[in-house]
Each structure stands twice: as structure tokens, then as C-alpha cells.
Design a protein around this nucleic acid. Sequence first.
DNA 1: CTGTTAGCGCGTTCAC
DNA 2: GTGAACGCGCTAACAG
Lengths: 363, 363
Amino acid sequence: MDKHAQAADKAWHSSPRMTDVAKLAGVATSTVSRALANPGRVNEETRRRIAAAAEQLGYIPNTAARNLRVGRSTIVLAALPGPSMIFGASQIIPAVLQGLASTVAEGGFDLIFSNRNSPAAARHVVDLAFGGTVRGVVVLGAADLPAYGSRSLADAGIPVVSLLTDRSAAGIPSVVTNDRAAMREGVLHLIALDHRSFFYIAGESGNYHEVERFSGLLDALAVVGLSDRAVIRHGGHLGFNEGFQNGVEAAHAYLALALARRPTAAVCCADDAAISFIGTVRSNGVAVPEDVSIIGFDGAAVGAFCVPPLTTLEQPAEDLGAQAARIMLDLLGGAAMPAPKTTVPSRLLLRASTATPSGRSER
Amino acid sequence: MDKHAQAADKAWHSSPRMTDVAKLAGVATSTVSRALANPGRVNEETRRRIAAAAEQLGYIPNTAARNLRVGRSTIVLAALPGPSMIFGASQIIPAVLQGLASTVAEGGFDLIFSNRNSPAAARHVVDLAFGGTVRGVVVLGAADLPAYGSRSLADAGIPVVSLLTDRSAAGIPSVVTNDRAAMREGVLHLIALDHRSFFYIAGESGNYHEVERFSGLLDALAVVGLSDRAVIRHGGHLGFNEGFQNGVEAAHAYLALALARRPTAAVCCADDAAISFIGTVRSNGVAVPEDVSIIGFDGAAVGAFCVPPLTTLEQPAEDLGAQAARIMLDLLGGAAMPAPKTTVPSRLLLRASTATPSGRSER
DNA sequence: CTGTTAGCGCGTTCAC
DNA sequence: GTGAACGCGCTAACAG
């Protein structure tokens, strides 16, 4: 490649500006601007000339200049809790993000990610909002809104949507699954199978999902007049990211119970715990579901291939993300405040890990 | 709240500009600009005044204006293949992204995501690059670089790093795991256990990982002088996203083999397939690892809790992402072209699904 | 319908 | 060491 070709090559690479398009089409830049934004408000003939010129030059508008001029960007921020793009086998977060990303993209927006586990990270989230980098924020999980000093995300003057956690009480539109009602339904299923004693494997104490799901369990017991004493509760010290370990520890606790005192059903706050619980008790001679039935929560794909296949409450993960995105898009489009709380229901997935209790008393 | 208070409230919310800080500190905007960027090139006393003013006002620089002025943004794009933030139980992609996101954030950059499954999506990726929205692109998996018309990402004049797929031949710095060597090591382990016949469960035919891993298997056979006829290859029509189904189908194919013809070891292109393969053959009376040993690929966390626990080749997913991010940061920092290919090795995780063949001949 | 003009908020000359 | 002036690329007024 000779020098001349190189120069031409370089010119090819450097992005042409609107001025270049205007010059080539023989019009003013403002006309080019309109032709691209309001194709209706410009003569068809000149519009074609401009389109042709833009096409020929490979013109692509400069984002920064446009954003500066119009005073807003086209980026939505997903503020994640901890470094938790990884989240057990359940993959709730990745699936939710996928739904969020797809729908946001359909709306013509881009999605940027940020963790907020460290103070610095939380501060960064706030800066992105106040600095005009992002146009709206979807907050996933966790308890407190990103903030630092006296500045909170809530004061940034941009739309905020809460995903997975219900913050409607704080005036933030929220998209959640029906953790409580779903768990209630799942346990009622166990009760219908004749289970009357339960082993509950808790998530992190105080965690939103943990609280909701345990409440759902109690709700179900109340329905049939069973007292809270029908359930032995284990765990609470491990987070959802440590679900597997949680299940193993719970299994040891279960195995430590005298045979007669062992509940006939184990209810898990998450599939990860259910899976490792099953693996551990089975290798210690406990039959599933004969000796103990197990029900998980999340609907992890791998559950269908466990031995035995796991009965679980499937979260509509992608839908959750898509719904949140839709609400955000409406808000960005100037819609009025949406429903404070959108619930996308989980559904009970019956598989072989639950059955009528049978084994133990006959052995 | 009366009208006046509301106005004050609004003023509180609207982001202060650099002018406001300058006014409050009694200096010119240019001085404020320097004080924030080159703290050294300004009088300590005035610098403090400016810092105080900025702090008091909660000043946060406007990103768009800054980007426009300096001609570059601070956003890195992760271009994902398909809608594959979800990727089986292995969660390779989410884990890789987590590593990428963390390290990119440490470098002071933000991460934006984009799929490129549809032509429109691919075009959008190119526009983001040419429009100056993003400063560099990390391309994950898949074969072709995003492009449309005559414009390709490669011509955008910004750094491109390939992650998971080796594109070093195309001059793009790549970060990959040693798929081939890892698989070779895994199979040599099986050979050391006395296995001489293999059942290979393939990923999608032509897929980079599939090709590399199968080659690794053949490499191992060659080491001990076994011919390719020692392996029965199954699959190839299902993608990595359909790993579970792939394993089930493979299991049926395996079960359809006459007992005497069944290989003593199954080598899987991914953990998902291994897990569902195990589940399916076991419920059909095949003992693992007595009748057949199984080895997977990826190191999915759930593998440790399968029955039996899965021997696998663990991919250093987060490291892969972190390495790619580091290279991108170097490139953005003006470093010279880095090593064309960075390999982050997988490691063999020995668990109970592999053992010396024993069961069948004695039954 | 189209051209002219005037900034958006910031960083970077260039004088003082 | 600091201030004044200019312009990044684009859109939104306002004329014509």
C-alpha cells in the first residue's frame, strides 16, 4: 500500500461529520439534521440526496455531541448487587439481565452495568446518574439505593425502577415475582400429598426473598391449621451465592436428627440448596422422595436432570427483566407513574422429588 | 411544601455546572477545569477553595460535554453472541462477564452490553463504535466480527479484543482457555485409569470450542497409539445452549449400543451434557463410574453436587474476562500491540464420576 | 421548505 | 498561576 492509498485509507476511517454530508449534498447542516430526525419535514428530493450522501460517506452521528445538545443520553443503567452476575446454578440474575437487555435494546436504548458492592462502586453509580451519562436506572436486588454523602440515586431526577425487590413502599415502581404466594402454593402441594412436618432451608436472614418465601411457608401451614412448630428452620447465615454449601450444611443438620423427628418434606429457599441437599442426604442413605420430599425455588434448568428431578417454583426470570425494561421505557417516554408494583408469577413445576411420604415408618 | 420551597428543591436537584463552581469559588471555569484534572498545575489554596465549592454544590462533570470536548468516551462494549447471557449451568458467559466488568471498572471505564444475533443488532454494535459511544470493544465467542454494509467493527479505529475465541490469526488479540490441551490432559487421565474406548458427546459442529476439544481428545489417543476408531462420536447438531438436551440424546444413543460395544468412558464437550447424560443412563441401570466414567468441561459449580460428583475441566472463567479487560485497558492506555494470544489454562478437577472401568464384564 | 444563528458544558490554547 | 476566548458536533430557534 503506497502513501497515497494509506492517506485515503485513513480518511476512510475517520468518521465524517454532519458538515461533510451537508457539503456533499449541497445543503446546510441543519437540513441534514432534520432529514435524519424528521424525514417528514423536508422535501423528498433533497431528503434523498442527503440520505445518499450520508450513505456514501458512511455517516454516523456523533453520540456525545447529540447528547450534549439534547441534554440526555440513551443509556440505561442496571445497578447490580455485589459481584453477582454469577448467582448459583439458578442463574436468575443472568436470565433477568438478558430479558432486561433485550427489551431495552428493542426500545432503542443501550444498557450499561455496574456493581455496587463497594462504596466506590455505589458512588460511581450515583455519578453516572448525576453526570448525565445514564437516562434511567434499574436497581436489582439488595436493600439500599446507591448513595454517597448526601446524594442518593433517588435525587438524580431520572427514572428508577426496582427489579426483584419490592420498593414500592418507597415510591419506586417495582417488578417482582410472587415469592410469598408461590411458596404458599408449593407447600400446599406438599400438604396435599400428606406431609405434615417440614424442614425449611433458609437463605440469608433478613433478605427480601428469604423473608417472603418463609412467610409463604407459614401461610400454607396456617391454611390447614398447622402451627409453626410443624417446621424446623435451618440456615440463615449463608447468602444466596452460597446456596450449595447451604444445602450441604442443612443436610448434615437433617441427618443429625433422630429418625423419628425428621420432617418428611424439605422446603428450600433456592434450587442450589435443594440440589446439594438431595445429593448429601442420598449419599447418606436417605431416599428421595420416599423418605423426604424436596421442593426448590427458582426453576434452574439443571433441576430437571437431577436425580430425582427437582420439583421447584420456577421464576419467570426473563419476563421479570422484560417487564422492568418496559416500565423503564414507558417512563423514559414520558408516561405517567406506572403501577407501583408489578408481579410476574412463579409457577409450580412438579417433578419427582416430591411424593406422598411412604418409606420411613415401614422400614 | 410551598412554591418557594419547591423551586429551591428543583434547584437542588438540577446538576450544577462548572460555571456555578467557578462563581462560588471566585475563579474562572478554566481554573476549575484544571483543578480537577491537573491538581498539580494550580495553586494549592485556590485548589482547596474550588474543591470545597465543588463538594458543597455536589458538582459532577457532565459526561457528554467532556466526551465531546476530548473526543472519546469512557465506555467499553462487550459484544455478546446471540441472546446468550444465559448459557447452561456452566455459566461461563456470566462468569466471564463478571471478570470483565470488575476489571474494566477498576480501570475507570464503564461496560455496555450488546447482543449481535440479529443484523440490526450487529449494525448497532458498529454504530456504537463509529459514533464514538464506545472506546473499545470486547467480542465474545462466535465467528464473525460485527459488520454491516461495507463497514466492519475492524475499521472503527478503536481497540478490539477477542474473548473465548481465538482470532489472533486475524490480528485481533485474543484471550482463550487451552481447550485442546486441557481436553488432552483429561482424556490422558482416563487412559491412565485403563480406559481404551470412548464415547464423545460433541457440541455444535464447527464451533470453535467443539473443534478444539475434540482435537484434544484425538491428541490424547495418539499419545498412546490408539486410533480414532477408539471413539464413538455423537452429537454435533445441538448448540451449547442446548447442552442438557444434547446429553439426554447422547445417553439414548449410548443405551442403544449393545452392551459389549459400549465405551467405558464418556467425554463431554460441556458439563450440561455430562450432567444430563449421567442422569439418563443411571435411570436406565447404567452405573457411574463403574459401567461408564464421565468427564465434563467447564467446571460448573453444580457438578460437585451431582451424583456422582462430576470430574471436569474447569475453565477459569473470571480470569478469562479479567485478562481480556486488562489487555483492553492497556490498549486504551496507549500500549503497543499486546501478545496476539493469551491462554488462561483450564485445570482438571478430579471427582467421582471417573474411575477404573470395572463393572460390566463381571456381570 | 431551507439557511442562518446560537449555544449545550467542557478542555485547551494563548495571553496576561 | 490564572482568565478570556474559542470550538468539539449537533439541534432548535428564528427568519426568509
